[in-house]
Design a protein around this nucleic acid. Structure first.
Length: 559
RNA sequence: GCCCCCGUAGCUCAGUGGAUAGAGCGUCGGACUUCUAAUCCGUUGGUCGCAGGUUCGAAUCCUGCCGGGGGCACCA
Protein backbone atom coordinates (compact mmCIF):
# COMPACT_ATOMS: atom_id res chain seq x y z
CA UNK A 1 0.00 0.00 0.00
CA UNK A 2 1.41 3.38 -1.00
CA UNK A 3 0.99 6.48 1.17
CA UNK A 4 -1.27 7.89 -1.53
CA UNK A 5 -3.53 4.85 -1.24
CA UNK A 6 -3.52 5.09 2.54
CA UNK A 7 -4.33 8.77 2.35
CA UNK A 8 -7.26 8.04 0.06
CA UNK A 9 -8.48 5.31 2.43
CA UNK A 10 -8.28 7.70 5.35
CA UNK A 11 -10.28 10.30 3.48
CA UNK A 12 -12.90 7.73 2.59
CA UNK A 13 -13.18 6.86 6.27
CA UNK A 14 -13.65 10.53 7.16
CA UNK A 15 -16.34 10.90 4.53
CA UNK A 16 -18.20 7.84 5.74
CA UNK A 17 -18.05 9.09 9.33
CA UNK A 18 -19.36 12.41 8.11
CA UNK A 19 -22.18 10.75 6.16
CA UNK A 20 -23.15 8.72 9.24
CA UNK A 21 -23.33 11.86 11.32
CA UNK A 22 -20.43 10.79 13.56
CA UNK A 23 -18.36 13.68 12.27
CA UNK A 24 -20.27 16.96 12.47
CA UNK A 25 -18.83 18.65 9.42
CA UNK A 26 -19.96 19.68 5.99
CA UNK A 27 -18.66 17.32 3.33
CA UNK A 28 -16.53 20.06 1.83
CA UNK A 29 -14.74 20.56 5.14
CA UNK A 30 -13.06 17.20 4.73
CA UNK A 31 -9.74 18.08 3.09
CA UNK A 32 -9.16 17.00 -0.50
CA UNK A 33 -5.93 15.31 0.44
CA UNK A 34 -5.36 13.98 3.91
CA UNK A 35 -1.69 14.04 4.79
CA UNK A 36 0.00 10.95 6.09
CA UNK A 37 3.61 11.23 7.16
CA UNK A 38 6.41 9.00 8.27
CA UNK A 39 6.58 9.39 12.04
CA UNK A 40 9.95 10.26 13.47
CA UNK A 41 9.79 7.48 16.02
CA UNK A 42 9.62 3.95 14.76
CA UNK A 43 7.26 2.89 17.56
CA UNK A 44 4.70 5.35 16.25
CA UNK A 45 3.89 2.99 13.43
CA UNK A 46 4.46 3.03 9.69
CA UNK A 47 2.47 6.16 9.01
CA UNK A 48 0.90 8.92 11.08
CA UNK A 49 -1.78 11.51 10.49
CA UNK A 50 -2.69 14.64 12.41
CA UNK A 51 -6.01 15.00 10.61
CA UNK A 52 -8.04 14.53 13.81
CA UNK A 53 -6.17 17.40 15.45
CA UNK A 54 -6.94 19.60 12.50
CA UNK A 55 -10.63 18.77 12.22
CA UNK A 56 -11.52 18.50 15.90
CA UNK A 57 -12.09 22.19 16.46
CA UNK A 58 -14.26 22.58 13.36
CA UNK A 59 -16.31 19.56 14.37
CA UNK A 60 -16.59 20.73 17.96
CA UNK A 61 -15.27 17.52 19.50
CA UNK A 62 -12.20 16.56 21.50
CA UNK A 63 -9.32 15.59 19.19
CA UNK A 64 -8.77 12.24 20.89
CA UNK A 65 -12.46 11.31 20.60
CA UNK A 66 -12.47 12.11 16.93
CA UNK A 67 -9.24 10.21 16.45
CA UNK A 68 -10.71 7.21 18.25
CA UNK A 69 -13.76 7.17 15.99
CA UNK A 70 -11.57 7.39 12.88
CA UNK A 71 -9.19 4.75 14.21
CA UNK A 72 -12.01 2.22 14.68
CA UNK A 73 -13.17 2.62 11.12
CA UNK A 74 -9.69 2.78 9.59
CA UNK A 75 -8.58 -0.41 11.31
CA UNK A 76 -11.12 -2.38 9.27
CA UNK A 77 -9.52 -1.29 5.98
CA UNK A 78 -7.74 -4.22 4.31
CA UNK A 79 -3.98 -3.95 4.67
CA UNK A 80 -4.19 -1.84 7.82
CA UNK A 81 -2.96 -3.94 10.74
CA UNK A 82 -3.35 -1.51 13.58
CA UNK A 83 -4.38 2.06 14.30
CA UNK A 84 -3.47 3.73 17.58
CA UNK A 85 -4.50 7.06 18.98
CA UNK A 86 -1.51 8.77 20.56
CA UNK A 87 -0.67 11.99 22.34
CA UNK A 88 -3.12 14.83 21.73
CA UNK A 89 -4.86 12.92 18.90
CA UNK A 90 -2.37 11.56 16.39
CA UNK A 91 -3.35 8.51 14.40
CA UNK A 92 -0.53 6.03 14.27
CA UNK A 93 -1.04 3.50 11.54
CA UNK A 94 0.70 0.17 11.12
CA UNK A 95 0.31 -1.78 7.90
CA UNK A 96 0.32 -5.54 7.38
CA UNK A 97 3.73 -6.68 6.25
CA UNK A 98 2.06 -7.90 3.06
CA UNK A 99 0.43 -4.56 2.32
CA UNK A 100 3.63 -2.65 3.08
CA UNK A 101 5.77 -5.10 1.12
CA UNK A 102 3.59 -4.82 -1.94
CA UNK A 103 5.35 -1.54 -2.57
CA UNK A 104 8.50 -3.38 -3.65
CA UNK A 105 6.64 -4.76 -6.63
CA UNK A 106 4.98 -1.42 -7.34
CA UNK A 107 8.39 0.22 -7.56
CA UNK A 108 10.03 -2.47 -9.66
CA UNK A 109 7.15 -2.47 -12.11
CA UNK A 110 7.07 1.32 -12.37
CA UNK A 111 10.81 1.40 -13.06
CA UNK A 112 12.11 4.76 -14.18
CA UNK A 113 8.62 6.17 -13.91
CA UNK A 114 8.52 5.68 -10.16
CA UNK A 115 8.60 9.06 -8.45
CA UNK A 116 7.39 10.98 -11.47
CA UNK A 117 3.98 12.59 -11.58
CA UNK A 118 1.71 14.61 -13.80
CA UNK A 119 1.21 17.33 -11.19
CA UNK A 120 2.47 20.03 -13.55
CA UNK A 121 1.46 18.35 -16.79
CA UNK A 122 0.94 20.75 -19.62
CA UNK A 123 2.89 23.54 -18.01
CA UNK A 124 5.58 25.10 -20.18
CA UNK A 125 8.42 26.48 -18.10
CA UNK A 126 11.40 28.49 -19.23
CA UNK A 127 14.16 28.03 -16.70
CA UNK A 128 17.02 30.47 -17.03
CA UNK A 129 20.16 29.88 -15.02
CA UNK A 130 23.92 30.47 -15.00
CA UNK A 131 23.81 33.22 -17.68
CA UNK A 132 27.33 34.28 -16.69
CA UNK A 133 28.99 36.92 -18.83
CA UNK A 134 31.55 35.51 -21.27
CA UNK A 135 34.33 37.65 -19.88
CA UNK A 136 36.10 34.77 -18.17
CA UNK A 137 35.78 31.11 -17.26
CA UNK A 138 32.80 30.05 -15.22
CA UNK A 139 33.71 30.36 -11.57
CA UNK A 140 32.44 28.57 -8.50
CA UNK A 141 29.38 30.79 -8.04
CA UNK A 142 28.13 30.05 -11.53
CA UNK A 143 28.80 26.37 -11.05
CA UNK A 144 26.43 26.28 -8.11
CA UNK A 145 23.61 27.52 -10.33
CA UNK A 146 24.57 25.03 -13.00
CA UNK A 147 24.22 22.16 -10.53
CA UNK A 148 21.12 23.44 -8.79
CA UNK A 149 19.44 24.74 -11.94
CA UNK A 150 19.89 21.56 -13.91
CA UNK A 151 18.65 19.49 -10.96
CA UNK A 152 15.64 21.78 -10.66
CA UNK A 153 14.93 21.36 -14.36
CA UNK A 154 15.01 17.58 -13.94
CA UNK A 155 12.76 17.72 -10.90
CA UNK A 156 10.26 19.96 -12.70
CA UNK A 157 10.28 17.59 -15.65
CA UNK A 158 9.58 14.74 -13.24
CA UNK A 159 6.50 16.65 -12.11
CA UNK A 160 5.22 16.59 -15.67
CA UNK A 161 6.24 20.08 -16.77
CA UNK A 162 7.87 20.80 -20.08
CA UNK A 163 11.09 22.64 -19.28
CA UNK A 164 13.42 24.62 -21.52
CA UNK A 165 16.84 25.30 -20.05
CA UNK A 166 18.03 28.69 -21.15
CA UNK A 167 21.29 30.61 -20.87
CA UNK A 168 21.12 34.39 -21.39
CA UNK A 169 24.32 35.20 -23.09
CA UNK A 170 25.38 38.76 -22.46
CA UNK A 171 27.40 39.83 -25.48
CA UNK A 172 26.52 43.47 -25.37
CA UNK A 173 27.48 46.34 -23.14
CA UNK A 174 30.28 47.81 -21.14
CA UNK A 175 31.58 44.65 -19.45
CA UNK A 176 32.14 43.15 -22.86
CA UNK A 177 33.92 46.33 -23.93
CA UNK A 178 36.23 46.02 -20.94
CA UNK A 179 36.90 42.43 -21.87
CA UNK A 180 37.78 43.45 -25.44
CA UNK A 181 40.08 46.25 -24.22
CA UNK A 182 41.78 43.81 -21.88
CA UNK A 183 42.46 41.38 -24.72
CA UNK A 184 43.83 44.12 -26.92
CA UNK A 185 46.06 45.49 -24.17
CA UNK A 186 47.46 42.04 -23.42
CA UNK A 187 48.09 41.34 -27.10
CA UNK A 188 50.07 44.56 -27.29
CA UNK A 189 52.02 43.68 -24.17
CA UNK A 190 50.45 46.49 -22.17
CA UNK A 191 49.06 46.56 -18.65
CA UNK A 192 45.41 45.56 -18.31
CA UNK A 193 43.13 48.60 -18.21
CA UNK A 194 42.18 49.90 -14.77
CA UNK A 195 38.71 48.34 -14.86
CA UNK A 196 39.71 45.39 -17.01
CA UNK A 197 40.32 41.68 -16.60
CA UNK A 198 43.76 40.36 -15.81
CA UNK A 199 43.69 36.58 -15.50
CA UNK A 200 46.03 34.28 -17.40
CA UNK A 201 43.16 33.23 -19.65
CA UNK A 202 43.14 36.74 -21.15
CA UNK A 203 46.57 36.11 -22.63
CA UNK A 204 45.52 32.74 -24.01
CA UNK A 205 42.36 34.08 -25.60
CA UNK A 206 44.24 37.05 -27.04
CA UNK A 207 46.78 34.71 -28.64
CA UNK A 208 44.08 32.54 -30.12
CA UNK A 209 42.27 35.55 -31.57
CA UNK A 210 45.48 36.63 -33.30
CA UNK A 211 46.30 33.13 -34.53
CA UNK A 212 42.78 32.62 -35.87
CA UNK A 213 42.89 35.92 -37.72
CA UNK A 214 46.22 35.12 -39.33
CA UNK A 215 45.11 31.61 -40.21
CA UNK A 216 42.05 33.08 -41.92
CA UNK A 217 44.28 35.31 -44.03
CA UNK A 218 43.27 38.43 -42.13
CA UNK A 219 45.67 40.97 -40.65
CA UNK A 220 46.98 40.40 -37.14
CA UNK A 221 44.56 42.57 -35.15
CA UNK A 222 47.31 44.15 -33.06
CA UNK A 223 48.48 45.92 -36.19
CA UNK A 224 45.11 47.60 -36.65
CA UNK A 225 44.15 50.92 -35.12
CA UNK A 226 42.35 50.90 -31.77
CA UNK A 227 38.71 50.74 -32.79
CA UNK A 228 38.83 48.00 -35.41
CA UNK A 229 41.38 46.03 -33.35
CA UNK A 230 39.16 46.13 -30.32
CA UNK A 231 36.22 45.00 -32.43
CA UNK A 232 38.14 41.95 -33.68
CA UNK A 233 39.10 41.03 -30.12
CA UNK A 234 35.54 41.59 -28.95
CA UNK A 235 33.81 39.52 -31.57
CA UNK A 236 36.22 36.60 -31.67
CA UNK A 237 37.14 36.79 -27.98
CA UNK A 238 33.53 36.51 -26.86
CA UNK A 239 33.02 33.63 -29.25
CA UNK A 240 36.04 31.74 -27.90
CA UNK A 241 35.25 32.46 -24.28
CA UNK A 242 31.68 31.40 -24.71
CA UNK A 243 32.63 28.18 -26.48
CA UNK A 244 34.88 27.40 -23.54
CA UNK A 245 32.09 27.99 -21.00
CA UNK A 246 29.73 25.85 -23.04
CA UNK A 247 32.25 23.04 -23.20
CA UNK A 248 32.90 23.20 -19.45
CA UNK A 249 29.18 23.06 -18.76
CA UNK A 250 28.78 20.16 -21.14
CA UNK A 251 31.55 18.30 -19.33
CA UNK A 252 29.61 19.08 -16.15
CA UNK A 253 26.58 17.39 -17.84
CA UNK A 254 24.65 20.62 -18.13
CA UNK A 255 23.40 21.42 -21.60
CA UNK A 256 21.04 24.24 -22.40
CA UNK A 257 18.24 24.08 -24.93
CA UNK A 258 18.67 27.73 -25.82
CA UNK A 259 21.66 30.03 -25.61
CA UNK A 260 20.02 33.38 -26.00
CA UNK A 261 22.15 36.28 -27.23
CA UNK A 262 21.36 39.59 -25.62
CA UNK A 263 22.58 41.33 -28.74
CA UNK A 264 19.83 39.71 -30.77
CA UNK A 265 17.21 41.59 -28.75
CA UNK A 266 18.72 44.84 -29.93
CA UNK A 267 19.33 43.85 -33.52
CA UNK A 268 15.96 42.16 -34.06
CA UNK A 269 13.83 45.08 -32.88
CA UNK A 270 12.60 43.12 -29.87
CA UNK A 271 13.49 45.99 -27.55
CA UNK A 272 11.47 48.48 -29.59
CA UNK A 273 8.64 45.98 -29.78
CA UNK A 274 8.55 45.56 -25.99
CA UNK A 275 8.69 49.29 -25.35
CA UNK A 276 5.96 49.92 -27.89
CA UNK A 277 3.82 47.34 -26.16
CA UNK A 278 4.33 49.01 -22.78
CA UNK A 279 3.67 52.41 -24.27
CA UNK A 280 0.43 51.09 -25.70
CA UNK A 281 -0.50 49.88 -22.24
CA UNK A 282 0.14 53.41 -20.94
CA UNK A 283 3.09 52.72 -18.63
CA UNK A 284 5.82 54.65 -20.46
CA UNK A 285 6.62 58.37 -20.24
CA UNK A 286 9.37 60.82 -21.20
CA UNK A 287 11.23 62.98 -18.69
CA UNK A 288 14.64 64.66 -18.47
CA UNK A 289 15.37 63.57 -22.01
CA UNK A 290 15.02 59.88 -21.11
CA UNK A 291 12.27 57.33 -21.53
CA UNK A 292 10.87 55.84 -18.32
CA UNK A 293 8.77 52.89 -17.28
CA UNK A 294 6.34 53.72 -14.50
CA UNK A 295 7.24 50.74 -12.32
CA UNK A 296 6.17 52.53 -9.13
CA UNK A 297 2.62 51.90 -10.26
CA UNK A 298 3.35 48.22 -9.60
CA UNK A 299 5.18 48.45 -6.29
CA UNK A 300 8.73 49.31 -7.33
CA UNK A 301 10.63 51.91 -5.23
CA UNK A 302 11.23 54.20 -8.17
CA UNK A 303 10.51 54.46 -11.86
CA UNK A 304 13.15 53.01 -14.16
CA UNK A 305 14.87 54.54 -17.14
CA UNK A 306 14.53 52.29 -20.17
CA UNK A 307 16.07 54.57 -22.81
CA UNK A 308 18.84 56.79 -21.53
CA UNK A 309 19.00 60.47 -22.47
CA UNK A 310 21.86 59.63 -24.85
CA UNK A 311 19.46 57.42 -26.78
CA UNK A 312 21.01 54.13 -25.66
CA UNK A 313 18.73 51.52 -24.14
CA UNK A 314 19.36 50.92 -20.43
CA UNK A 315 20.09 47.37 -19.31
CA UNK A 316 16.54 46.78 -18.17
CA UNK A 317 15.33 47.38 -21.73
CA UNK A 318 16.93 44.07 -22.64
CA UNK A 319 15.21 42.38 -19.72
CA UNK A 320 11.85 43.75 -20.80
CA UNK A 321 12.31 42.52 -24.30
CA UNK A 322 13.66 39.18 -23.14
CA UNK A 323 10.76 38.53 -20.82
CA UNK A 324 8.21 39.44 -23.47
CA UNK A 325 10.06 37.22 -25.93
CA UNK A 326 9.84 34.24 -23.59
CA UNK A 327 6.12 34.76 -23.14
CA UNK A 328 5.61 35.15 -26.88
CA UNK A 329 7.50 31.91 -27.42
CA UNK A 330 4.67 30.26 -25.50
CA UNK A 331 6.08 29.74 -22.03
CA UNK A 332 3.51 29.92 -19.24
CA UNK A 333 6.16 30.62 -16.69
CA UNK A 334 9.61 32.17 -16.81
CA UNK A 335 11.80 31.17 -13.89
CA UNK A 336 15.08 33.00 -13.45
CA UNK A 337 17.77 31.93 -11.01
CA UNK A 338 19.97 34.76 -9.81
CA UNK A 339 22.69 35.26 -7.26
CA UNK A 340 22.04 37.17 -4.05
CA UNK A 341 23.82 40.18 -5.47
CA UNK A 342 20.88 40.59 -7.86
CA UNK A 343 18.07 40.54 -5.36
CA UNK A 344 17.51 44.26 -5.83
CA UNK A 345 16.15 43.51 -9.32
CA UNK A 346 13.18 41.62 -8.08
CA UNK A 347 11.03 44.66 -7.45
CA UNK A 348 11.52 46.17 -10.89
CA UNK A 349 11.26 42.82 -12.67
CA UNK A 350 7.97 42.01 -11.00
CA UNK A 351 6.71 45.52 -11.73
CA UNK A 352 7.66 44.97 -15.36
CA UNK A 353 5.79 41.68 -15.35
CA UNK A 354 2.69 43.48 -14.05
CA UNK A 355 3.10 46.25 -16.59
CA UNK A 356 2.77 43.67 -19.35
CA UNK A 357 -0.49 42.59 -17.74
CA UNK A 358 0.97 39.38 -16.34
CA UNK A 359 0.87 38.08 -12.79
CA UNK A 360 4.07 38.39 -10.75
CA UNK A 361 5.26 35.14 -9.16
CA UNK A 362 3.05 33.19 -11.52
CA UNK A 363 4.21 34.10 -15.00
CA UNK A 364 7.54 35.31 -13.72
CA UNK A 365 9.40 33.77 -10.85
CA UNK A 366 12.80 34.85 -9.59
CA UNK A 367 14.80 32.51 -7.40
CA UNK A 368 17.59 34.08 -5.42
CA UNK A 369 20.45 31.85 -4.39
CA UNK A 370 23.03 32.83 -1.83
CA UNK A 371 26.69 33.00 -2.72
CA UNK A 372 29.43 30.47 -2.31
CA UNK A 373 32.26 31.40 0.02
CA UNK A 374 35.64 29.86 -0.40
CA UNK A 375 37.59 28.89 2.66
CA UNK A 376 41.18 27.79 2.89
CA UNK A 377 43.01 26.95 6.09
CA UNK A 378 39.98 28.18 7.99
CA UNK A 379 40.35 31.61 6.41
CA UNK A 380 37.93 33.07 3.87
CA UNK A 381 39.44 33.46 0.43
CA UNK A 382 38.42 36.52 -1.51
CA UNK A 383 37.88 35.64 -5.10
CA UNK A 384 39.70 37.98 -7.38
CA UNK A 385 40.24 37.56 -11.08
CA UNK A 386 43.32 39.76 -10.78
CA UNK A 387 44.85 37.90 -7.86
CA UNK A 388 44.28 34.56 -9.53
CA UNK A 389 42.25 33.18 -6.61
CA UNK A 390 39.38 32.29 -8.89
CA UNK A 391 38.21 28.71 -8.70
CA UNK A 392 36.72 27.75 -12.02
CA UNK A 393 34.34 25.00 -12.95
CA UNK A 394 37.23 23.07 -14.47
CA UNK A 395 39.31 23.42 -11.29
CA UNK A 396 36.43 22.06 -9.27
CA UNK A 397 35.84 19.12 -11.58
CA UNK A 398 39.56 18.32 -11.69
CA UNK A 399 39.66 18.32 -7.90
CA UNK A 400 36.63 16.18 -7.07
CA UNK A 401 34.97 14.99 -10.27
CA UNK A 402 31.60 15.84 -11.72
CA UNK A 403 29.51 13.62 -9.45
CA UNK A 404 30.95 14.91 -6.19
CA UNK A 405 30.88 18.51 -7.37
CA UNK A 406 27.28 18.38 -8.57
CA UNK A 407 26.15 16.57 -5.49
CA UNK A 408 27.95 18.85 -3.04
CA UNK A 409 26.52 21.95 -4.68
CA UNK A 410 23.00 20.58 -5.05
CA UNK A 411 22.56 19.12 -1.57
CA UNK A 412 22.29 22.44 0.23
CA UNK A 413 19.39 24.83 0.10
CA UNK A 414 20.07 27.70 -2.29
CA UNK A 415 18.90 29.99 0.52
CA UNK A 416 22.04 29.25 2.48
CA UNK A 417 25.38 30.71 1.68
CA UNK A 418 27.70 27.70 1.63
CA UNK A 419 31.35 27.45 2.50
CA UNK A 420 33.53 25.35 0.27
CA UNK A 421 36.82 24.35 1.79
CA UNK A 422 39.46 24.40 -0.92
CA UNK A 423 41.87 22.25 1.07
CA UNK A 424 39.20 19.65 1.57
CA UNK A 425 38.35 19.57 -2.13
CA UNK A 426 41.96 19.28 -3.14
CA UNK A 427 42.81 16.71 -0.50
CA UNK A 428 40.28 13.98 -0.82
CA UNK A 429 36.78 12.96 -1.63
CA UNK A 430 36.09 10.59 1.21
CA UNK A 431 34.04 12.97 3.31
CA UNK A 432 31.47 13.44 0.64
CA UNK A 433 27.99 11.97 1.18
CA UNK A 434 27.66 11.34 -2.54
CA UNK A 435 29.78 8.22 -2.10
CA UNK A 436 27.54 6.96 0.64
CA UNK A 437 24.59 7.13 -1.73
CA UNK A 438 26.49 5.84 -4.74
CA UNK A 439 27.91 2.97 -2.73
CA UNK A 440 24.41 1.96 -1.72
CA UNK A 441 23.51 1.79 -5.40
CA UNK A 442 26.63 -0.20 -6.25
CA UNK A 443 25.72 -2.58 -3.46
CA UNK A 444 22.24 -3.16 -4.81
CA UNK A 445 23.79 -3.92 -8.18
CA UNK A 446 26.27 -6.31 -6.64
CA UNK A 447 23.60 -8.10 -4.65
CA UNK A 448 21.55 -8.48 -7.83
CA UNK A 449 24.58 -9.96 -9.64
CA UNK A 450 25.22 -12.43 -6.84
CA UNK A 451 21.57 -13.38 -6.70
CA UNK A 452 21.59 -14.06 -10.41
CA UNK A 453 24.63 -16.28 -10.07
CA UNK A 454 22.93 -18.27 -7.30
CA UNK A 455 19.64 -18.69 -9.16
CA UNK A 456 17.66 -16.38 -6.94
CA UNK A 457 15.13 -15.04 -9.40
CA UNK A 458 12.41 -12.46 -8.88
CA UNK A 459 10.02 -14.14 -11.27
CA UNK A 460 9.96 -17.31 -9.15
CA UNK A 461 8.18 -15.74 -6.20
CA UNK A 462 6.97 -12.57 -4.55
CA UNK A 463 5.40 -12.98 -1.13
CA UNK A 464 5.38 -9.53 0.48
CA UNK A 465 4.28 -10.90 3.85
CA UNK A 466 7.83 -12.26 4.17
CA UNK A 467 9.19 -8.71 4.31
CA UNK A 468 8.53 -8.59 8.03
CA UNK A 469 11.90 -7.64 9.47
CA UNK A 470 11.93 -4.24 11.25
CA UNK A 471 14.62 -2.97 8.90
CA UNK A 472 12.38 -3.89 5.97
CA UNK A 473 9.51 -1.81 7.30
CA UNK A 474 11.89 1.15 7.52
CA UNK A 475 13.27 0.59 4.04
CA UNK A 476 9.81 0.18 2.51
CA UNK A 477 8.70 3.36 4.22
CA UNK A 478 11.61 5.23 2.69
CA UNK A 479 10.91 3.84 -0.77
CA UNK A 480 7.34 5.05 -0.46
CA UNK A 481 8.52 8.61 0.08
CA UNK A 482 10.13 9.30 -3.30
CA UNK A 483 7.00 10.58 -5.07
CA UNK A 484 6.22 12.97 -2.25
CA UNK A 485 9.80 14.21 -2.07
CA UNK A 486 10.00 14.84 -5.80
CA UNK A 487 6.65 16.61 -5.84
CA UNK A 488 7.69 18.80 -2.95
CA UNK A 489 11.09 19.55 -4.46
CA UNK A 490 9.37 20.67 -7.66
CA UNK A 491 6.73 22.73 -5.94
CA UNK A 492 9.18 24.52 -3.66
CA UNK A 493 11.95 24.71 -6.29
CA UNK A 494 14.24 22.96 -3.84
CA UNK A 495 16.04 20.07 -5.51
CA UNK A 496 18.31 19.63 -2.48
CA UNK A 497 15.45 17.74 -0.84
CA UNK A 498 16.09 14.88 -3.22
CA UNK A 499 19.70 14.61 -2.08
CA UNK A 500 18.77 14.58 1.58
CA UNK A 501 16.16 11.96 0.90
CA UNK A 502 18.67 9.75 -0.90
CA UNK A 503 20.99 9.88 2.09
CA UNK A 504 18.21 8.62 4.33
CA UNK A 505 17.26 5.94 1.85
CA UNK A 506 20.88 4.82 1.52
CA UNK A 507 21.12 4.59 5.27
CA UNK A 508 17.97 2.43 5.46
CA UNK A 509 19.36 0.19 2.74
CA UNK A 510 22.79 -0.25 4.32
CA UNK A 511 21.14 -1.21 7.61
CA UNK A 512 18.87 -3.68 5.88
CA UNK A 513 21.81 -5.17 3.99
CA UNK A 514 23.54 -5.69 7.29
CA UNK A 515 20.63 -7.63 8.74
CA UNK A 516 18.81 -9.36 5.91
CA UNK A 517 20.52 -11.51 3.30
CA UNK A 518 19.21 -11.74 -0.23
CA UNK A 519 21.35 -14.70 -1.22
CA UNK A 520 21.54 -18.00 0.65
CA UNK A 521 24.58 -18.80 2.77
CA UNK A 522 26.64 -21.87 1.94
CA UNK A 523 24.44 -24.86 1.12
CA UNK A 524 21.22 -23.18 2.16
CA UNK A 525 18.41 -23.69 -0.32
CA UNK A 526 16.95 -20.71 -2.16
CA UNK A 527 13.69 -19.75 -0.48
CA UNK A 528 10.85 -17.40 -1.24
CA UNK A 529 12.30 -15.09 1.39
CA UNK A 530 15.43 -14.70 -0.73
CA UNK A 531 13.40 -14.17 -3.87
CA UNK A 532 11.11 -11.63 -2.24
CA UNK A 533 14.05 -9.76 -0.76
CA UNK A 534 15.52 -9.51 -4.22
CA UNK A 535 12.41 -7.56 -5.18
CA UNK A 536 13.10 -5.18 -2.32
CA UNK A 537 16.77 -4.92 -3.28
CA UNK A 538 15.89 -4.13 -6.86
CA UNK A 539 13.21 -1.65 -5.84
CA UNK A 540 15.82 0.18 -3.76
CA UNK A 541 18.21 0.13 -6.66
CA UNK A 542 15.56 1.68 -8.87
CA UNK A 543 14.76 4.44 -6.42
CA UNK A 544 18.43 5.28 -5.84
CA UNK A 545 19.00 5.40 -9.59
CA UNK A 546 15.93 7.56 -10.17
CA UNK A 547 16.92 9.94 -7.41
CA UNK A 548 20.54 10.26 -8.47
CA UNK A 549 19.31 10.83 -12.00
CA UNK A 550 17.28 13.81 -10.80
CA UNK A 551 20.50 15.33 -9.50
CA UNK A 552 22.48 14.55 -12.62
CA UNK A 553 24.76 12.25 -10.63
CA UNK A 554 25.73 8.84 -11.94
CA UNK A 555 24.55 5.62 -10.32
CA UNK A 556 27.55 3.29 -10.58
CA UNK A 557 27.17 -0.48 -10.91
CA UNK A 558 30.45 -1.04 -9.10
CA UNK A 559 32.73 1.06 -6.95
C1' G B 1 18.61 54.72 6.28
C1' C B 2 15.83 50.94 3.33
C1' C B 3 15.60 45.83 1.07
C1' C B 4 16.91 40.31 0.65
C1' C B 5 19.19 35.74 2.84
C1' C B 6 21.24 33.34 7.02
C1' G B 7 22.03 32.32 12.61
C1' U B 8 20.29 24.67 14.81
C1' A B 9 25.96 19.63 17.89
C1' G B 10 33.25 21.00 17.63
C1' C B 11 32.76 21.62 11.71
C1' U B 12 29.49 21.45 7.13
C1' C B 13 24.40 21.45 6.93
C1' A B 14 18.90 19.08 6.98
C1' G B 15 14.32 19.94 9.25
C1' U B 16 7.96 25.22 4.78
C1' G B 17 2.79 24.28 12.92
C1' G B 18 3.28 18.25 15.52
C1' A B 19 5.25 13.61 19.44
C1' U B 20 11.86 12.74 22.85
C1' A B 21 15.23 18.57 17.17
C1' G B 22 18.41 15.03 13.02
C1' A B 23 22.45 13.49 9.30
C1' G B 24 27.46 13.48 7.54
C1' C B 25 32.25 14.53 9.20
C1' G B 26 34.97 14.78 13.92
C1' U B 27 35.84 12.09 19.28
C1' C B 28 36.10 7.42 21.74
C1' G B 29 35.00 2.00 21.64
C1' G B 30 33.21 -2.42 19.07
C1' A B 31 31.81 -5.80 14.37
C1' C B 32 34.87 -8.71 8.30
C1' U B 33 36.74 -17.34 6.94
C1' U B 34 29.65 -16.40 4.55
C1' C B 35 25.74 -11.00 -0.71
C1' U B 36 31.92 -5.30 -1.40
C1' A B 37 33.90 -2.80 5.94
C1' A B 38 33.34 3.43 0.77
C1' U B 39 29.40 -0.57 5.54
C1' C B 40 27.13 -1.55 10.35
C1' C B 41 26.57 -1.08 15.98
C1' G B 42 27.54 1.76 20.27
C1' U B 43 29.65 6.54 22.45
C1' U B 44 30.32 11.76 22.64
C1' G B 45 27.95 15.98 21.73
C1' G B 46 22.17 21.34 21.72
C1' U B 47 19.65 27.84 26.31
C1' C B 48 17.47 25.79 17.74
C1' G B 49 21.18 34.01 18.25
C1' C B 50 18.06 37.00 22.23
C1' A B 51 13.20 38.81 23.92
C1' G B 52 8.09 39.08 23.34
C1' G B 53 3.53 37.44 20.64
C1' U B 54 -0.02 34.01 17.89
C1' U B 55 -2.00 28.39 19.38
C1' C B 56 -3.98 22.66 21.90
C1' G B 57 1.17 22.63 20.05
C1' A B 58 6.71 27.06 17.45
C1' A B 59 13.50 25.57 15.24
C1' U B 60 9.27 26.58 11.82
C1' C B 61 4.40 31.92 11.66
C1' C B 62 4.33 37.55 13.50
C1' U B 63 7.03 41.90 15.95
C1' G B 64 11.48 44.00 17.94
C1' C B 65 16.61 43.61 18.89
C1' C B 66 21.79 41.41 18.23
C1' G B 67 25.35 39.09 14.89
C1' G B 68 27.11 37.45 9.74
C1' G B 69 26.60 37.86 4.32
C1' G B 70 24.66 40.49 0.00
C1' G B 71 22.22 44.66 -2.32
C1' C B 72 20.04 49.71 -2.97
C1' A B 73 22.69 53.85 -10.92
C1' C B 74 20.26 57.35 -17.09
C1' C B 75 26.65 50.32 -14.92
C1' A B 76 25.93 45.78 -17.14
Amino acid sequence: MTPAELSAALRAVLLSAQADGVLALAADQVPETVTVERPRQREHGDWASNVALQLAKKAGVAPRDLAQAVAERLSTVPGVAQVDVAGPGFLNITLDAAAAGELARTVVEAGEEYGRSQANAGERINLEFVSANPTGPLHIGGVRWAAVGDALARVLEASGAQVAREYYFNDHGSQIDRFARSLLARARGQEAPEDGYGGAYIGEIAERVRADAVAAGEPDPVTLSDAPAQEVFRARGVELMFAEIKQSLHDFRVDFDVYFHEESLHSSGAVEHAIARLRELGHVYEADGATWLRTTEFGDDKDRVIIRSDGMPAYIAGDLAYYLDKRERGFDRAIIMLGADHHGYIGRMMAMCSAFGDTPWVNLEILIGQLVNLVSGGEPVRMSKRAGTVVTIDDLVDAVGVDAARYALARSSADSAIDLDLDLLARATNENPVFYVQYAHARTANVARNAGALNVRREDAFDPALLDHPSEAVLLGQLAELPRVVAQAAELREPHRVARYLEELASAYHKWYDQCRVTPMGDEPVTDTHRTRLWLNDATRQVLANGLGLLGVSAPERM
